[in-house]
Design a protein around this nucleic acid. Structure first.
Length: 773
RNA sequence: GGGUUCAUAGUCCAGUUGGUUAUGACGUCGCCCUUACACGGCGAAGAUCCAGGGUUCGAAUCCCUGUGGACCCA
């Protein structure tokens, strides 16, 4: 019989035709009716070539979630967004044009950023499409669009009116070269050689000398306490006494705190505003009054006395010199110090108190814990990341940034009395250039205003993504049916940020959890298990891989290689070998496509056995799909298809299907079963490898429409025949071995007794191995 | 320093509530064109299940201690 399928292997080029077919038929269009399934898709950030292969694998799996839900009969809202706010594009633009953001015209700088993003975005969308994502590309959103930013601003205004926002003067990471507060995420750490200076402090009203080691002697003038460990017996006699700061000649108290390590330096440390983050915590905890020793220009302030006006480094050298001249230095060690560096200017950051806006979060922690416990995490172990984070929240969230490419904080200040005013929500506001929408100061009645220049932390935008896709404040009917969303897929490393902030803000705004499920994926690492980075040169670019092997190969690799929630290794070689399975599937289909489709038949024991094994696969797959864990179905299908269906069943019934020595009924039963198994496998695989399954489905003509409109298969056979699997496969192996031992070809006849328990399969076994009667 | 997590053949991975001989794949080595497939088939070799201790009739699996790695936070 002529097979309907001619070629002997799957050609990934066909994917392009199929993609077009889906697009033309609007196969994945969302309808707001029936059972609605909403995905809070993570909008990827277009950070430049190559797109991380782990991210591509991640999105392939999110699409599997969408397709699974669709085959369960749901209407799936699968939005596609692009995250465009924030630091990376600013850095990219500064580097590309060799300019500095704060020294460039703001409007011009924004334009450059936007253009850069457009190029990077276009390529990203192309990759997402070619991966076969069934998302809503025709209405993809951008987080820097007027629509999106006006939502961010509206939610801010709403919280402002609820009294959730306040302004406070607190120490922050500060990069004095570029003149901006920066987030922790923008700090990198480097081991830098530095001097650890052991300085002599006199104890007041005694002859005792207390030695204190510090890498920041220039901050002596900002010292407000000496700290020793409460268990450190060397210092128990001086606790509560005062010490005299050398050179500065000011008294400070000696106190205890567990953060003072006995082994570091002399065991006694000075708390200055601010040497590092620990100092910040100490000042807060011990309620010390801060002394501003370093100005925003990176120079010592007046409190530094003789050192005032000097740059930090100069001041350090000068004060060491003075200490030595006055014999106040015990010794100096050269050490490597893990120093926080600004990612942007590569200089050590300073911690300086600045006025910033804060969103209250401390009082929401209990409520978030409650909501968090109701969200179903996949895998469940990653819920712990959120819970641990909630335990460690001690301060409110600083939300203002001194950046350009972000959503503007919609505030205008009265020129006369400085009273801040927020406008009405609904529009997109740019206070740095827009005329004030406020006409009269509510406090003093003045009529002139100055716009705020700062922007929001980008998580302020990202954290309202479920509200955006559900048309919050825009379409009540739509919102009601699509919020809370069904699932938030995202990666493990941003649970503390994106996931947490989303729950926080959605709770504050709607009182509800933003989604029912959270699906947390691990990182893609290189083939040796190391993190990929451009500097290490171990980055794998997904684009050529997809072009070479096809999206389905990439997707199947992603499904079968990644166990949900765990890190996974990426290597081109592994992806390549995955393609073999698609070839296998293709050839099985090619073989079957030569036989007519038979709708029903009276099956034989051999048929019942494989159908029973098929049912087992179906059940396992359904379990995996329900948990959105595609590792389970993909590996289970591959094993069944290759090692049972192809290797044993097809070989066993080949003779019967060709009808040599069998009745018509027996032949029909074989053909029926072959098609039953294959069509079930294609449907099960459809969410994972949508191209090849759809193509084969339509070529063999299992139905006249796409496989993606099918319902998921269910286990159908009540009788369990799987106890025969082992005897059958062992029997077949035995014969193959025997023929090999006797140097026989597989088609040569052989005399072998069929064991008692396999008698009901005898006819097929005889035909398969050419057993002598 | 705190937390999460992992540890099974040369490599990657499975092992559900503890139960005969530890799963599969890649790679290696042999043989083989067998009416779907050489991008294939069959076979073989390859594991003190990280170490030590405990619970148990029985532990890769449960508990404790340790070691090593990855990541997050400080």
């Amino acid at each position: 019989m002529e097979p309907k399928i001619k070629e002997t292997s799957w050609n990934p080029e066909i994917e392009k035709q199929i993609l077009k077919q889906w697009e033309d038929s609007k196969a994945y269009e969302f309808r707001l009716e029936g059972d609605v399934f909403v995905i809070d898709t993570p909008p990827p950030y277009p950070s430049g070539r190559p797109w991380h292969i782990g991210a591509a694998a991640h999105y392939a799996q999110i699409d599997m979630i969408a397709r699974t839900a669709r085959m369960q009969g749901k209407n799936v809202l699968f939005p596609i967004g692009i995250d465009r706010n924030g630091l990376p594009v600013e850095l990219y633009t500064e580097k590309k044009y060799n300019i500095r953001m704060h020294e460039t015209d703001r409007a011009e700088f924004l334009n450059l950023c936007s253009t850069a993003l457009n190029d990077l975005e276009a390529e990203m969308i192309q990759i997402m499409k070619s991966l076969g994502l069934s998302g809503n590309f025709s209405e993809y959103y951008r987080t820097d669009s007027e629509q999106y930013r006006s939502l961010t601003q509206a939610t801010f205004i709403e919280l402002w009116k609820k009294g959730m926002v306040y302004i406070a003067n607190r120490p922050n990471n500060y990069d004095w070269v570029t003149g901006t507060t920066i987030a922790d995420a923008e700090i990198i750490y480097e081991e830098i050689p530095t001097k650890l200076v052991y300085m002599k402090f006199k104890i007041k009203d005694s002859d005792m000398i207390l030695t204190i080691a510090s890498t920041r002697p220039e901050l002596l003038c900002a010292c407000q306490a000496i700290i020793v460990n409460p268990d450190d017996e060397r210092y128990s006699s001086v606790i509560g006494k005062s010490a005299i700061i050398p050179v500065i000649n000011r008294e400070v108290q000696i106190r205890t705190h567990p953060s003072a390590e006995k082994e570091f330096g002399s065991g006694a440390v000075m708390a200055c505003s601010y040497g590092d983050q620990n100092d910040v915590a100490l000042f807060r905890e011990l309620k010390l009054e801060e002394i501003v020793a370093i100005g925003k220009n990176g120079r010592m302030t007046e409190v530094a006395g003789a050192y005032s006006g000097l740059k930090i480094k100069q001041a350090r050298e000068k004060i060491i010199e003075d200490l030595q001249n006055q014999n106040l230095v015990e010794k100096i060690e050269n050490i490597n110090h893990r120093t926080p560096i600004s990612e942007r200017s590569k200089i050590p950051i300073e911690i300086i108190a600045m006025e910033e806006y804060y969103l209250k979060q401390k009082e929401s922690v209990e409520k978030i814990k409650e909501l968090g416990s109701k969200i179903v995490f996949h895998p469940s172990m990653h819920k712990q990341i959120l819970m641990n984070w909630l335990e460690s929240i001690t301060i409110d969230w600083p939300i203002s940034r001194r950046r350009f490419y972000g959503t503007e904080i919609p505030i205008w200040y009265c020129k006369k009395c400085s009273e801040p005013h927020v406008p009405e929500p609904g529009r997109y506001y740019r206070p740095w250039k827009d005329p004030s929408p406020i006409s009269k100061c509510t406090k003093c009645g003045a009529t002139e205003f100055v716009g705020e220049e700062r922007t929001f932390d980008t998580w302020m935008d990202s954290s309202v993504s479920p509200l955006y896709v559900s048309k919050y404040n825009k379409d009540k009917e739509f919102f009601k049916k699509t919020y809370p969303a069904s699932i938030r897929p995202q990666s493990k490393d941003i649970v503390r940020t994106w996931l947490y902030y989303t729950v926080l803000r959605c709770e504050q705004l709607t009182g509800m959890t933003p989604w029912k499920d959270a699906w947390i994926m691990g990182y893609g690492v290189d083939e040796h298990g190391a993190k990929m980075s451009k500097s290490k040169g171990n980055v794998v670019d997904p684009l050529p891989v997809i072009q070479k092997f096809g999206a389905d190969t990439f997707r199947f690799w992603s499904a079968s290689e990644i166990n949900l929630g765990y890190d996974f290794r990426c290597s081109e070689q592994k992806i390549e070998t995955t393609k073999k399975f698609l070839s296998k599937l293709w050839n099985i289909s090619r073989f079957l496509s030569g036989f007519p489709i038979i709708k029903s038949a009276t099956t034989t024991p051999t048929d019942n056995w494989i159908l029973s094994e098929l049912d087992k696969v179906v059940s396992e797959c359904r379990k995996g799909f329900e948990d959105y864990n595609f590792f389970v179905p993909s590996t289970s299908i591959r094993e069944f298809t290759w090692n049972l269906f192809a290797a044993h069943y097809i070989e066993m019934v080949k003779g019967r299907a060709y009808s040599t020595g069998f009745s018509e009924e027996e032949r029909d039963a074989a053909i029926f079963t072959l098609h039953k198994v294959l069509s079930t496998l294609l449907a099960l695989l459809a969410p994972i490898t949508p191209f090849i399954t759809d193509y084969l489905w339509q070529q063999i003509q299992y139905s006249d429409k796409t496989v993606h409109k099918e319902k998921f298969p269910q286990a159908e056979n009540p009788q369990d025949w799987t106890r025969f699997t082992k005897p059958i496969t062992e029997f077949n192996s035995n014969i193959w071995n025997k023929k090999k031992e006797q140097n026989l070809s597989l088609k040569d006849a052989i005399e072998v007794e069929i064991p008692e328990d396999l008698h009901q399969f005898a006819k097929d076994l005889k035909a398969m191995h050419n057993l002598k009667p």
